[in-house]
Design a binder for these strands. Structure first.
Lengths: 331, 331
DNA sequence: CTGAAAGCGCTAACAA
DNA sequence: TTGTTAGCGCTTTCAG
């Protein structure tokens, strides 16, 4: 590997001078500067960022810990974050926690060990307490991790309220909530969806129904459970899900059972990714503002990194939008 | 940041001893070992991997350069790779090249600068010549980059032949190929799909038709182009696409135009991700063996890293599978 | 079985 | 405007 000293020798200057050219600070004659640049070019020199970071300089590395990357919602969020970070000269270390606490813990240690400048956490499993002990800047997506870690998310209550209201407006009376339900554990931001659902239905004197679907279930199992629900309960005429994929599954099942959507059954999803809008525009759903979420995650992280801002019990909430499609309105 | 020296002091030993415990080599008394472990625990010590790698040790970092992460195919490939690498104690730096050669070049430099142990490249834009000049281990997915860089991919010829054969078997006569067509540039592995398509149709005395769709087109534009094609050409009765998303789009358009699939129009996709099989099981498609591809990419990379194996014009080809769905056969 | 000292590639006082 | 020197946190000879 060619090193700074090689460049210095080739250019006939000291290592310091080369360093100054690279980081361009201090006063350097134009002549020296070009000599150095030429030498770098000829040797195809790339500075060793490890050595550089060892001096206390930033690594320009950000760790991303997410529960999945194949889910279109996370894929789009990760892609957006990556893109923004790249523009700010940061690189991304991708950590797929896969709902495995041990893997998440190992990854966290790795990130610390690699001296990343910051960490963005989006896991939906119960948060590791270790996050609170890390000195790195951290922000969280839609999840409480520690008092000192700011949370960014969309307005789960408002979003779910929109969904429930839309179902009721499309004259559904027998409505099910499919997805994560709050089961004894501590209340997390996403649990607001269930709370809003209960509230809106109660406001309309309707009884809320639930089919709990945890994230660890395979798609086939979920499929079977939904099929079971719809096949044995002819009265169901409205379903809201906590993600669009479950909504898709529901629609597939309805088709298998020859249940007409939206005549017999109205369906509303949640997430509203570009993917769904492109390839399943018919689905009524609640769109989370992915670009805004990504931007806010990053700016909040940068405030900690660059301005040493620290947060206490801070929760940033962004509004969701209802996208009306053919699964609640026939056209 | 607590450092090795802090641990040493706390344990009342020399830094050398601590280092030996961490890397567990040399001979250490059990007593010393536990003292050190205890000190590490108490101080919540994480070794600084930058300092460690500066000595020439591996960084345990692998760069992944892909054209997209939101496309389910790449998302699944990346997820599988990440998972395998994690098991081998490697971390992933995710580089979304986004079909932008400059971004790709910048990322490559960053990866070199970060001393990654290896790079897996899956970009489908024309390969940068710079890849040939890098000293790091590199493998490529389905793309020629340089003689020294091994290529791993599925059997594009065989896959496309399966697709075309399936269309013809379902009695399609007027068949279109939708997707990347080889246009003057050098021949890449994926161009075998077009070649196979031409060959199979020619074998059956059918004329091949094409709607070129480059990857830089937005989904809306593609949608429009496909709509244009189907609306103005009633005779079309078979379509094969070079990816499943385009197939989905085609089916959506057909539905808009009230063209019955598969009675009037047979459709075959390409990629066969788990995502499609879960949420669009009806689609006939060619499934690429993502787990095998990931594994072969990694083992080929590791051979270079660990055993200093070098390759010349090596091309590993894995077989595809036809998945028969309702878009070519009515049931 | 343990420690002292040199050095990985780079940056940052401090001099000149 | 440029160079000398020390040192980032760790590993690794070489001694003991």
């Amino acid at each position: 590997m060619t090193k700074l000293a090689d460049v210095a020798k080739k250019a006939g200057v000291s290592p310091t001078t080369v360093s100054r050219v690279i980081n361009n600070y201090g006063a350097i004659s134009q002549k020296t500067r070009s000599k150095v640049h030429e030498a770098m070019k000829e040797l195809n020199y790339q500075p060793n960022s490890l050595a550089r970071s060892l001096q206390g300089k930033k690594t320009q590395l950000i760790g991303l810990i997410f529960p999945s990357i194949t889910n279109p919602f996370y894929a789009e969020l990760i892609a957006t974050i990556e893109n923004q970070l790249f523009k700010n000269h940061y690189k991304v270390i991708l950590c797929n926690a896969a709902d495995d606490p041990q893997k998440e813990r190992d990854y966290l240690n790795m990130l610390v060990s690699n001296q990343v400048d910051g960490i963005i956490v989006g896991t939906h499993a119960k948060g590791l307490k270790e996050y609170g002990e890390v000195k790195q800047a951290i922000v969280s997506f839609d999840r409480y991790l520690a008092d000192s870690i700011p949370i960014i998310g969309s307005d789960n209550y408002q979003g779910a309220a929109l969904a429930a209201t839309e179902l009721i407006a499309s004259s559904a009376k027998n409505i099910y909530f499919l997805g994560n339900v709050h089961a004894g554990r501590d209340l997390q931001p996403t649990d607001q969806r269930e709370i809003a659902f209960r509230k809106i239905l109660s406001d309309h004197n309707l009884e809320p129904h639930f089919l709990p679907l945890t994230t660890d279930l395979s798609v086939n199992i979920k499929h079977m459970m939904i099929r079971d629900l719809l096949a044995n309960n002819q009265k169901i005429d409205g379903i809201m899900t906590t993600d669009d994929l479950t909504a898709l599954l529901t629609i597939n099942v309805a088709q298998e059972l020859s249940i007409n959507v939206p005549q017999k059954l109205r369906v509303v999803g949640f997430d509203g990714t570009k993917f769904i809008q492109d390839f399943y525009p018919d689905l009524t759903t609640i769109a989370q503002p992915i670009p805004d979420i990504a931007e806010l995650l990053i700016t909040t992280l940068f405030k900690q990194i660059d301005e040493k801002v620290s947060y206490q019990n801070k929760h940033f909430i962004l509004p969701n939008k209802l996208i009306k499609g053919g699964t609640t309105h026939s056209n």
